[in-house]
Design a protein around this nucleic acid. Structure first.
Lengths: 130, 130, 130, 130
DNA sequence: GTGGTCTAGACCACT
DNA sequence: GTGGTCTAGACCACA
């Protein structure tokens, strides 16, 4: 019995690891953030209904709903009552979100340097993204 | 009940925020990582005893113990029985640790770009660190 | 699918935001209340037929019908069988409606004060209306 | 069988109407907002544990938790893991919250005027609060 | 003790 | 069809 689920959506893969210490709903959130920030999902795209995704991932609908709610409050989704959930427009002025993430990057960079990786290598890695 | 604790250790500050969503033991871990990766604590330095730190921070000794065990597992501390805990040497060849952190950086960079921050700005931020 | 609809009616705008958490039929109700209380629609004016408005707003006729029924219940519309819906006369003695709204205002004022807005500012805002 | 629950907490009353069209968790949220904005609950006060309040109100703990989470994201509560929930400091710079509430006040004032209440009466009512 | 997650399954409101 | 709410009850992590 596998303890993870992978679902292909177009070219992209949606992956949940039931054994992970990370909560399932958080993994769903992270998967969607990845699909959105990589451009695989774009503004106004419809996402699967709560029930459908729950069936695909073989988890309880409540769990998916919690993820969708979280994505809505974080500004990645919007909900149209009776019609489903959709990808929202990027909010480019969320200073708090930016600051949190920059701090996290700073922390990781320090740890990477401690593990022997140079700033130049890290910057080269970032430039190679996408 | 105070909702945060700050303890000066030399020039550096050790800070616990009870209001944070992060578990206290994780905050203790992160504080030590920060002190180590910024050079405030160096190889073979002795760290405070579990009981002492617990008293300083006004948290349960079990919590500090959990943090110390975690730091040992992650290779930041080593224990000498009967003498206490000490800062370990950096492990410069921990490919798994490096890979995990690079992935996390990649994820954060994508989210920052999505929030309107350019790669150039992120790189400039990294260069400005320390 | 557009995520909002604006329809000009004379000088005034009728606006539905599908992304809002508010039910569409409630938004239709609110739009009419606004047009009525601002004087854009007056006593005995005829309102569009359910089918026409549904077409203009690109929503389901059932949704508009629900809104019209609600507006009739609340005393803003009256129906003449075979002729359509019309704007009713203001009911100046509806103590219950007044009391409900005053309570709501009180609640909002308390929350505004809690968020640092002074009573004077709130009163100035009210005086500036219209 | 009564369809509502009233719980006295000190001088204040906490009231839930199971028959209301408003969701139970929202009623819990509103009750706490009222207690906070009227000053009955103050910064750093401990609120009842999820299980305790659920027992008092005779609702499911999940329902109370949903309310507490909402209060946390709206900035009224903060959670200390393993210790419970506490009243947060007022956030005096939440422009969005202020704007939303001012708009709502404007709407209500227009409706009150439509129902025959004068601006002067409304302002007098606001000045009489507390 | 505390909050957090998850399931199974029911019922409701809106479109 | 869609999302939203609620219950009953289980299990886990943290302090």
């Amino acid at each position: 019995m596998p303890h993870y689920t992978r679902v292909r959506r177009g070219e992209e893969v949606f992956q949940i690891d039931l054994k992970s210490r990370k909560a399932i709903y958080e993994q769903v959130v992270d998967n969607f953030k990845r699909l959105i920030t990589t451009g695989a999902l774009r503004e106004h795209d419809k996402v699967p209904s709560i029930r459908d995704l729950a069936r695909s991932l073989d988890v309880n609908p409540n769990t998916v709903q919690k993820a969708y709610r979280e994505l809505e409050t974080q500004g990645y989704f919007y909900t149209v009552l009776g019609q489903g959930n959709f990808i929202a427009s990027p909010s480019t002025n969320d200073d708090k979100a930016v600051q949190t993430r920059l701090n996290a990057v700073g922390e990781l960079v320090r740890e990477l340097i401690y593990h022997g990786v140079s700033k130049e290598e890290i910057i080269k890695f970032i430039e190679s993204l996408d």
